[in-house]
Amino acid sequence: MSLALDKPRSPKRPAARRGNGELYSWLFMRLSGLLLVVLVLGHLFIMNILDGGVHKINFGFVAGRWASPFWQFWDLAMLWLAQIHGGNGVRTVINDYARKDSTRFWLKMLLYVSMVLIIALGTFVIFTFDPNISN
């Protein structure tokens, strides 16, 4: 008779050893997607339909909007979420379709660099926008 006592009190579910990166990126896609529906449709509605639509947009209109922290935050959230959501989507496309490891690496590097550049540039503009620049 054998006594199976090698793991008598081992927890039924030991802690995960691997990272949860893919889980979080999957979850982020769902949550950011939901937020972006509100942010982007709201943005399109304000910019293209309300008050004469696209013809009202000029320097003054943008300056007026960004005088309010609410719209600053709205545009900032939209920029970050859209960049990371879209970037993550393109990352999975690259993972799926790149055949060589070197191709995959360089495409992803190109993607990450472009994401960082656009996020940095957009954030910089939103926070340092000077409405009196035309004077």
Partner: peptide
Amino acid sequence: RLDILNDIDGVWR
């Protein structure tokens, strides 16, 4: 098993 499938080659693909 869930740990194995949580990997980059697992269910999230």
